[in-house]
Amino acid sequence: NKFNKEMRNAYWEIALLPNLNNQQKRAFIRSLYDDPSQSANLLAEAKKLNDAQA
């Protein structure tokens, strides 16, 4: 399933972002599970926040 693969990839990328705190990571990951079709958008948002907090 395409969404499962995208979701799994996004999950690990988000989990490993160095500048997000655990609460932020959990919120993004919860959103991934709520709507796997938004994986790419959620990952992009997480990366933006990660960069902003660098």
Rank of each mutant, 00 (worst) to 15 (best):
N22I: 08
E6N: 05
F3M: 09
F28K: 01
P18S: 11
S39Y: 14
L16Q: 14
Q23G: 12
K2G: 14
E45P: 00
S31M: 08
N21F: 08
L17D: 01
S39T: 07
N4I: 04
A44G: 10
N22G: 11
A52F: 11
L20M: 03
D51H: 09
L43R: 14
I29K: 06
N41H: 12
Q24A: 06
L49F: 08
Y11R: 14
E13V: 14
N9A: 15
A27S: 09
I29H: 12
P18I: 05
Q23Y: 13
Q53H: 07
S39W: 14
A15N: 13
P18L: 11
A52C: 03
N50K: 01
F3T: 13
M7N: 02
L49D: 02
S31Y: 08
P36A: 06
I14D: 00
S37V: 08
N1C: 11
L42F: 08
K5S: 03
A46F: 02
R30H: 05
R26K: 05
K47V: 05
F3H: 15
D35I: 10
A40E: 06
D34E: 08
K25S: 01
S39D: 02
N19W: 08
W12N: 14
L42R: 07
K47F: 10
D35R: 13
M7H: 03
P18E: 10
N41L: 13
L43K: 08
N50S: 12
N19F: 13
W12I: 07
D51W: 13
N9F: 12
A40W: 14
N9R: 15
A40C: 04
E45Y: 13
I29R: 06
R26E: 03
S39G: 07
Q38W: 10
E45K: 14
N9W: 15
A15P: 01
L16A: 14
N21I: 08
K5R: 05
K47L: 08
N9C: 06
L42N: 03
Q23M: 11
A15L: 15
K25Y: 06
L16Y: 15
L32D: 00
R30Q: 04
A44N: 10
P36C: 02
N4E: 14
A54W: 13
I14Y: 01
Y33R: 04
A44F: 12
E6F: 05
L49G: 01
A46E: 00
N50A: 03
L32S: 01
L43F: 03
K47Q: 05
L43P: 01
L42Y: 07
L32V: 05
D35F: 13
E45Q: 12
N1L: 05
S37I: 07
L20F: 01
P18R: 15
S31T: 04
A10N: 05
S37A: 11
I14W: 01
K48Q: 05
E13Y: 15
P18M: 10
R8I: 06
D34L: 14
A54I: 08
